[in-house]
Design a protein around this nucleic acid. Structure first.
Length: 681
DNA sequence: TCAATCCGTATC
DNA sequence: ATACGGATTGAC
C-alpha cells in the first residue's frame, strides 16, 4: 500500500465513473463530482465507501455515492486516488436521507454526513470482519408480544399492523405510569418478528439504558440490537455502527446521533419524548431527530411511532394532517392510571412550620409529602435546573417579585443595581412585596442541592436524595425518601410509584419568554406526574400554580392532546411554527444583509427583525462552537424569515443558494442559517 | 518587455 | 479552501 501509482492508469471496464461527495464544507460545492475508477480499484470502489480524491489540487476525503457508465461532466475526469476502506459505511438509504435532510435545513451534504457516519476506526473494522452469518435463522422469538398495548383502544391494531408488515404511523400518548420502554420494545419486537429492522431514538443515556434493558428482555439474543450513544468511545461507537451497517444488528437504539444509523431493511422508526430539546442537533445544519426520523420513515416506507407522556404541537400537526393516527388511552383508563393532581394558586399559604416555610413549601404540599412518607412511599420533588432563570424574590417570604406595571418577572443584573422588569424594562424602585410587605429583593437562584437541604430540615429524619446534572439516579426503592430532581433527571420509583410528587417553582418555567414555555412546562410536569402511583393507590401531585391556567388544566386531566390542540390552534393564529416555517439568520449585520440580498426568497416571505443578539454568556461548560473570531466591535444581529408551510422547501432552497453565492464569493463573515430555530423570542 | 500581483472563477 | 488564468501594474 505504498505510493504504488502506475503511470498509466486504466479506467474500470464497467461503470468506470464514480460519483463522489467531497468533504468540503462550502455551499456552492454541495454536489457530486465525477471521477474515474482505476481498474485496480474496481472491486473496492462500491457505493458507500470512503475515498480519497484530488480536488482543486489537494487530496480530500469523500464518499462514493454510486457508479455510472458515463459522466455529464465536459472536462477530463481525474482518477480516484484511493479507496480508504472497502467498508460501505454510507448506505444508499442513508445517502438519500442525508440529502433530504441537507435540503430541508439549507445545509450541505458533507455537513450531514459528518453527523451520519462516525469517524473510521481501522481496528474496529478488523475486529468484526467475520461475515454476517446471521441469515436464514427464524426471525423473532415467537414470544407473544404486545399485551401492554391492549390498554389503548388503537394499540392492538398498531401491533397487528407492525407484525403484518405494514407501515403504520402513530403518535402515542402514554398512560400515566406507563412502562414505556416495555411498550417500545414490544413494537420493535413485532417488526423484528416480521424480519425487518428498527431504529429508536430517546433523549438521554438514562432513557437509553432503560430501553436497552427492555429490548434485551423481548429480543433475547443480545447480538440482534446495539445501543449507540455519545458516551461511547470512538472505537466502540464505530464497532456498533458497523454491526448495524453489516446487518448483524437488526435493531439500533440510541440518542440523537443514532438517528442516521444504517439499519438494514428499516421497517420502523421510533422517537420517544419528541419535545425534549436534546433531540435538536447543535451542529450544522441543526437537524431535529423528529424531522430526520419522520423523513426517514417516509423515504424508506417504514412505520413511525412518536411517543411520550406529553405531546408537541408538531406531533399534533401530524395527527391533524392525517399523517399519523392517534394512540391514547380512553378517558376512564387515564383517570384510573393517573394520580390526583392538586393545583395551588399564587396566593397560597406557606406552611406554618418554619422549616417547611423556609423550603417554600405550601401547607398542602407539605401535608401531601408527609402523608406519603408516613405511608411508606417515596416523594418526588421537581425543581427547575440551577441557573435556569435567576428569578428575583422577596428576601422575607420568598414570593417571586413581579413588575407592578405589567406583572413581568424582575431581574437583577448585578447585586448592586436596582431590579428591573424583564418584559417592560421599568425599574422596580420602591418595591414592596404584596404578600408580606418586605422591601428587599434577592436573586433566588435555587438549585436542587439547596432545595434538598431545606427540604431535609422540613422533614427531619427522612432520607433526602438528589438527582440532577451531577449524578443522575435511575431509580429509587419503594421506601420513604425525599427525592429532589431537576426536570429530565427524575428517577423511576420502584413498585407502584411515588406516593406524592411536588412540582415547585413552576413560576420560573411558566413565565419564560419562549414560544414553547407552556408546552415545555406541561411536558416536564407530565413526566414527573407519570411516575406517581394512581389516585386509587393514594398517588398525589401538588403543582404550585394557578389551576385556571390551561397548562395546569391539562395536567389535572392528564390530557396533553387537548393542550397540544389548543397550542397548535394558537400558533396557527399567531403564525408561529409548526403552522409556519421559520429560519433564523445570525451574523454580523452587513453579512446578514448581504445574505438576504443574495436570497431569492419565496413569495410571501416575511422578514422579522433584525434584532441585536446578546452575546451568549453563562450556559454550560461545553463548547458552544463559536465560529472563527469575528470583530467583536461589529454588532451581531438576527433576522427571522417566516413563510407558509407550503413554501418551506423553497425557503430552504433559496437560503442554500444564497449561502452558495456568498461562499463562492469568499464572503468573509459567516452567517448562521438555522431552520426551525429553538429560541424564537 | 517581463515579472510580480490582484482578482475572479472553477474545482470532476 | 486552493489553484490557476487573465488582466493589471510596475520596474527596468
Amino acid at each position: 500500500m505504498g505510493r504504488a501509482r502506475p503511470r498509466t492508469r486504466q479506467p474500470a471496464e464497467k461503470l468506470p465513473v464514480a460519483r463522489v461527495c467531497v468533504d468540503i464544507p462550502l455551499a456552492h460545492l454541495d454536489r457530486p463530482f465525477d471521477y474515474l475508477v482505476p481498474a485496480e480499484l474496481d472491486e473496492a470502489a462500491t457505493a458507500g465507501v470512503r475515498v480519497r480524491v484530488r480536488f482543486a489540487g489537494q487530496l480530500v476525503d469523500g464518499f462514493l455515492l454510486g457508479r455510472a457508465e458515463e459522466s455529464t461532466h465536459d472536462g477530463r475526469l481525474a482518477f480516484l486516488e484511493r479507496v480508504v476502506s472497502p467498508e460501505p459505511v454510507l448506505s444508499p438509504e442513508v445517502a438519500t436521507l442525508a440529502r433530504a435532510v441537507a435540503d430541508r435545513y439549507a445545509g450541505t451534504l458533507p455537513d450531514v454526513l459528518r453527523l451520519a457516519v462516525p469517524p473510521r476506526h481501522a481496528r474496529a473494522e478488523q475486529d468484526q470482519s467475520r461475515p454476517p452469518a446471521a441469515t436464514g435463522e427464524p426471525a423473532g422469538t415467537g414470544r407473544p408480544a404486545g399485551t401492554g398495548w391492549s390498554r389503548y383502544p388503537a394499540g392492538a391494531a398498531l401491533l397487528r399492523a407492525l407484525s403484518g408488515g405494514r407501515a403504520p404511523r402513530a403518535v402515542w400518548t402514554a398512560l400515566p405510569g406507563e412502562d414505556w420502554p416495555a411498550r417500545l420494545a414490544e413494537a420493535i419486537g413485532a417488526m423484528l418478528a416480521r424480519g425487518r429492522g428498527a431504529l429508536a431514538v430517546v433523549p438521554d443515556a438514562r432513557d437509553l439504558d432503560r430501553l436497552d434493558a427492555a429490548l434485551a428482555g423481548v429480543l433475547g439474543t443480545p447480538d440482534r440490537h446495539v445501543a449507540l450513544s455519545a458516551a461511547l468511545g470512538p472505537a466502540e461507537r464505530y464497532r456498533r455502527f458497523l454491526a448495524a451497517a453489516r446487518g448483524t444488528a437488526r435493531v439500533v437504539v440510541g440518542t440523537r446521533a443514532a438517528m442516521f444509523a444504517p439499519v438494514a431493511d428499516l421497517g420502523l422508526v421510533v422517537l420517544w419524548d419528541d419535545g425534549d430539546d436534546l433531540h435538536a442537533e447543535p451542529r450544522a445544519p441543526y437537524p431535529h431527530a423528529r424531522e430526520v426520523l419522520l423523513t426517514r420513515a417516509q423515504l424508506a416506507g417504514a412505520a413511525a411511532l412518536v411517543g411520550g407522556f406529553a405531546r408537541t404541537a408538531e406531533a399534533q400537526l401530524l395527527l391533524e394532517t392525517g399523517w399519523a393516527v392517534e394512540i391514547a388511552g380512553a378517558r376512564e383508563a387515564v383517570r384510573a392510571a393517573g394520580p390526583r393532581v392538586v393545583p395551588l394558586g399564587d396566593d397560597v399559604q406557606l406552611a406554618r412550620d418554619p422549616a417547611a416555610a423556609a423550603a417554600r413549601l405550601p401547607t398542602v404540599a407539605w401535608q401531601a409529602a408527609r402523608d406519603a412518607l408516613r405511608a411508606g412511599s417515596p416523594v418526588l420533588v421537581q425543581v427547575p435546573r440551577r441557573g435556569y432563570l435567576p428569578a428575583v424574590s422577596c428576601v422575607d417570604c420568598r414570593a417571586p417579585a413581579r413588575c407592578r406595571h405589567c406583572h413581568g418577572p424582575l431581574e437583577l443584573r448585578s447585586s448592586r443595581a436596582m431590579a428591573a422588569c424583564r418584559w417592560c424594562g421599568r425599574p422596580a424602585s420602591g418595591y414592596a412585596c404584596p404578600h408580606c410587605g418586605g422591601q428587599l429583593l434577592r436573586a433566588a437562584v435555587v438549585g436542587a442541592r439547596r432545595t434538598a437541604e431545606e427540604l431535609g430540615r422540613a422533614f427531619p429524619g427522612t432520607a433526602v436524595r438528589t438527582s440532577g446534572r451531577d449524578g443522575v439516579l435511575t431509580s429509587v426503592p419503594d421506601e420513604p425518601a425525599l427525592v429532589v430532581a431537576t426536570p429530565g433527571a427524575e428517577p423511576v420509583a420502584e413498585g407502584p410509584g411515588y406516593g406524592a410528587v411536588l412540582l415547585l417553582d413552576t413560576w420560573a418555567l411558566l413565565t419564560r419568554a419562549d414560544l414553547r414555555a407552556g408546552e415545555e412546562a406541561l411536558r416536564r410536569w407530565l413526566h414527573a406526574a407519570a411516575l406517581a402511583r394512581p389516585a386509587g393507590a393514594g398517588g398525589r401531585v401538588v403543582v404550585v400554580a394557578d389551576g385556571g391556567l390551561p397548562t395546569v388544566q391539562a395536567l389535572l386531566r392528564f390530557d396533553p392532546g387537548w393542550y397540544a390542540g389548543r397550542e397548535l390552534a394558537e400558533r396557527r393564529e399567531l403564525g408561529f411554527p409548526p403552522a409556519t416555517r421559520m429560519a433564523s439568520l445570525t451574523g454580523p449585520r452587513d453579512a446578514v444583509a448581504d445574505l438576504l440580498a443574495a436570497a431569492r426568497l419565496p413569495d410571501g416571505a416575511q422578514l422579522l427583525g433584525p434584532i441585536p443578539v446578546p452575546l451568549r454568556g453563562g450556559g454550560r461548560g461545553g463548547g458552544e462552537g463559536t465560529g472563527p473570531g469575528h470583530d467583536p466591535a461589529e454588532p451581531v444581529e438576527r433576522v427571522l424569515v417566516r413563510v407558509a408551510r407550503s413554501a418551506a422547501p423553497a425557503l430552504a432552497a433559496a437560503l442554500h443558494a444564497a449561502l452558495g453565492v456568498r461562499s463562492a464569493r469568499k464572503a468573509p463573515d459567516p452567517v448562521r442559517v438555522q431552520l426551525d430555530p429553538l429560541d424564537l423570542l
